[in-house]
Structure formats: structure tokens, C-alpha cells
Design a protein around this nucleic acid. Structure first.
Length: 340
DNA sequence: TACTCGTGGGC
DNA sequence: TGCCCAAGAGT
């Protein structure tokens, strides 16, 4: 175990990725917990490449947790548009306000961090280790992959999670736990990749049990996933005086709280009914977009329409500025189709 | 526990 | 192309 720790940290000292939210190894400076927290939330199920620009925009606009806490919720949701998993943005605001009420200081223990909205087992451990130099066992998908291979854990995920966590606990050092966690993630992202691991470049290859068995690329095994159903829905493009009608989606559920085109109530379990929630006269079809969500695929038809009754709740957004509406990608593409 | 919840990139 | 995958959390 000791050599695994030391060699991984030595590898990290040499090869750590340079990232906007990261303090380089061997730098005594402690990273700003606000920036660590913000980056960790953005990075949940999201690639580094996708996060970089969002992180830059957020930290420029809201340099401290107090400023983020004071922001309008709609502005934060708009700034998050396109990054996905919008519950993260709602929890981000709630968490910022909790922390601001504590004087702007994040809790410094894994246990207390875990109580914050949107901060789960992984994120609380990561913040405690990276921002507060606490020993914490940080387990994300990278760590699961590296540990599965290092110890040749052939039982499939998610059943193997407890065994993976125990093994990760055994290799986590008392000191530099934050660097160790980031080293594991860098190794998983650049060397111990899910497909075609680069074992020849790996500092742990000679102690890797899966490598010795010739099965590194086959681990971790996973339980087969269910097929994704295909759904259909309709969105309505309603113009008036060079503006288009946008609505706000319900606070929970798909794309919760986000600005959107009016639609027909499609969801993961049912097709839309083809009708708007308010009276319209349907006009010409303007096209369709197919969009893949995690657990279903949606084909959304875009129809021109006119209001045929009382004024619905919503806002008339200038079409020339539709790019600044903060539409999630599905509706941004639908708007693009309508305007093509 | 198992399901819900986005998006873009790689092959 | 269709499928897999990514610094998971909430319920």
C-alpha cells in the first residue's frame, strides 16, 4: 500500500493537470473552498472540458459565495443553461445561501459538508480533502475504475461498491489526501481510461493485479443497463412583434425551473399529447429535433402557433436575443430549428 | 435499492 | 450511427 501511495503522489507532482480550480501540487497555498465546491458540483457527471468555460464565467460574475448567494435565482439558472442536471444549479443557490448565513465559511469537515444541499458522499469527501487537507476517502467513477483494476475486483458495479470503498480507504494516505484524490482522478482521466488504458505509462502498472491478469481493459464490469425508450413531444413557437413566448418549467422534474418553449407535457414515461397547456391555433410545422437524455430519447416537433385565448403566463423574449435566454440545450436546438 | 436527472465527445 | 461514458445527488 505504501508504495502505491508514494508512487502515485510522485507521479502527480510531475504530471498533475493544470486546471483553473486547482492549486498545483507542492504549492503551500490552500485552495479557496468556494472554488473547490463550485468546481466539484459542476464536475458531477460532467467532463472537465465542458466545465471550464462555465467555471470561468461563474467565478468572474460571482467571485465569492456571498455574491452567489445574493444573486437572482433566474440569473444563476440562466448561467447554468447548457451544462445539464439542473437540480445542481438549484441546489447550488440553496447551498450558497446556507454558507452565506454562516458568514461565508464552508464547514471544514466531511460530516458537516455532507449536510449541504447538493453535496453528497463524493463531494463532501472531495472538498474536505482538497480544500481543508482532511483525510477523506474520495470515490468517484475514476477511483472506482482505478481501484477495480489495481485489485482486480471482478464483481460488477454497483455491487462491488463496498469492496471498492474499503480498498480505497486502505490506500488513502493520512497526509496529502487531497492531492492523492486528485492524483487518482488524473490517473483515471489520462492513463487508466475506461477504454484502452495506457498501462505502459502507468506508475502503478507493475503492482496492478488486473494488468498482471491481462484484464485491465475489461474492468470495472458493470450490470447491463436497460434500453432507452423513445418519446415524442411537441413544442410551440409563438411569435408576436419580433418576440417569442417563453415559459418557466416547473421547479422539479425535467429541466426544472428552466426557461423553455411551451410544450405538450412530454416526459420520460409518456409521449406528449400534442396540445399546449393553453388555447392555441396550430400552424405550420417548423421542424423537429431529436435529443438524447440519460434514460430516454425525445423527438420534439416544433410547431408554429398563435394564441387563441387568454394571455398565458410567460415572457415575450426578443427573438434576436434568443441566445441569451438561458434555454437548456433541447430548447435552444428547437429554437434554432424554428429560425432556420 | 433503483430510478430520475443533461449534455457533449469518442469511437 | 448508436452506445458508452463523465469529479453524483436526491428520492
Amino acid at each position: 500500500m505504501a508504495d502505491v501511495r508514494e508512487r502515485l503522489l510522485a507521479w502527480y507532482d510531475e504530471h498533475a493537470r493544470v486546471l483553473p480550480w486547482r492549486v498545483p501540487p507542492n504549492n503551500r497555498a490552500t485552495p479557496d473552498p468556494y472554488r473547490v465546491w463550485l468546481s466539484e458540483v459542476m464536475l458531477q457527471q460532467t467532463t472537465v472540458a465542458a466545465v471550464k468555460d462555465y467555471f470561468a464565467r461563474f467565478t468572474e460574475r460571482w467571485p465569492t459565495v456571498a455574491e452567489l448567494a445574493a444573486a437572482e435565482e433566474a440569473d444563476v439558472l440562466s448561467a447554468w443553461a447548457g451544462l445539464g442536471y439542473y437540480a445542481r444549479a438549484r441546489n447550488l443557490i440553496a447551498c450558497a445561501r446556507v454558507v452565506a448565513d454562516r458568514g461565508g465559511l464552508f464547514p471544514d469537515s466531511e460530516e458537516d459538508l455532507r449536510e449541504l444541499p447538493g453535496v453528497g458522499a463524493y463531494t463532501s469527501a472531495a472538498i474536505a480533502a482538497i480544500a481543508f487537507d482532511r483525510r477523506a476517502v474520495v470515490v468517484d467513477a475514476n477511483v472506482e475504475r482505478v481501484i477495480s483494476r489495481l485489485f482486480a475486483i471482478t464483481e460488477p458495479l454497483p455491487t462491488s461498491r463496498p469492496a471498492i470503498r474499503e480498498a480505497a480507504d486502505r490506500v488513502t494516505p493520512e497526509r496529502r489526501a487531497g492531492d492523492f484524490a486528485q492524483a487518482m482522478m488524473d490517473l483515471g482521466a489520462t492513463i487508466c481510461t475506461s477504454r484502452e488504458p495506457r498501462c505502459l505509462l502507468c506508475p502503478l502498472s507493475d503492482v496492478c493485479e488486473a494488468r498482471a491478469m491481462g484484464i485491465a481493459g475489461d474492468l470495472p464490469r458493470k450490470i447491463a443497463k436497460k434500453a432507452r425508450p423513445a418519446r415524442t413531444g411537441t413544442a410551440f413557437w409563438i411569435e408576436r412583434d419580433s418576440h417569442v413566448l417563453l415559459v418557466q418549467r416547473p421547479g422539479k422534474g425535467m429541466l426544472g425551473g428552466m426557461r423553455a418553449l411551451p410544450d405538450d407535457g412530454w416526459n420520460a414515461r409518456a409521449d406528449g399529447n400534442g396540445k399546449a397547456e393553453f388555447a392555441v391555433r396550430q400552424g405550420d410545422p417548423l421542424g423537429a429535433v431529436t435529443h438524447g437524455f440519460t434514460h430516454f430519447t425525445l423527438t420534439l416537433s416544433v410547431l408554429r402557433a398563435e394564441l387563441a385565448g387568454s394571455e398565458p403566463e410567460g415572457e415575450w423574449w426578443p427573438i434576436s436575443q434568443i441566445g441569451e435566454a438561458g434555454l437548456p440545450t433541447l430548447f435552444a436546438r428547437a429554437a434554432q430549428t424554428a429560425l432556420a
